[in-house]
Amino acid sequence: MNLTLKIWRQIDANDKGKMVDYKVTEISEHMSFLEMMDVLNEQLVNTGEEPVAFDHDCREGICGMCSMYINGEAHGPDRGVTTCQLHMRMFKDGDTITIEPFRAKAFPVIKDLVVDRSAFDRIQHAGGYISVNTSGNTQDANATLISKHAADEAMDAATCIGCGACVASCKNASAMLFVGAKVSQYALLPQGQVEAADRVKNMVAQMDLEGFGNCTNTGACEIECPKGISLENIARMNRELLKANV
């Protein structure tokens, strides 16, 4: 495949940035999107140009590092995949592909397609954990009985990899699907009950402080989430916050 790429280039956080056109040729449809980016970068290095900076790590849809906004959608046009799992067979020979960083005030661009998602880390630090004794007397996990339904729902919520596609896709740059998932994974389990009220209050307060927008229930986050995190987690977070305040 021969492709035209329109890529956001930005030298650093202070640079204004702009879209730049590139041509790539002989791209295999079996390549992943990041492998296609590797081909482009090799081409740029060989011609003495600055390669395009983009986030990546595991390249198997687990780490949540890759974060491109491809042709107007987070992680591109495929469903239930991260950018590293997106294959070039989703595109056609001669296509023009627009590649941008995830856009949100709370996710400032560091360079090219790399954004600072440490706002998610600060939300997690505010309460996305349980305090347990790990001094050698840890209780056996199977000693606490949990219903299959609750365990499944908690596990579904826990599959959130914190990639930020929900924020990138939301017209309001809201982080409520991420925070909803992180609140839910503990709210559904007995281990999470002790700190439940403080957890949801602190995480929501930190989310608001970071400058994310409000949820208007468009459902875009759920559709674009590579892990299929359900909107039900936002409803559960809302219930948890109300419960914590009455």
Partner: peptide, 12 residues
């Protein structure tokens, strides 16, 4: 508030 949460818009 929601518009302020995304200062730079997407090109596409």
């Amino acid at each position: 508030k929601n518009r302020n949460a995304r200062v730079a818009k997407y090109a596409k």
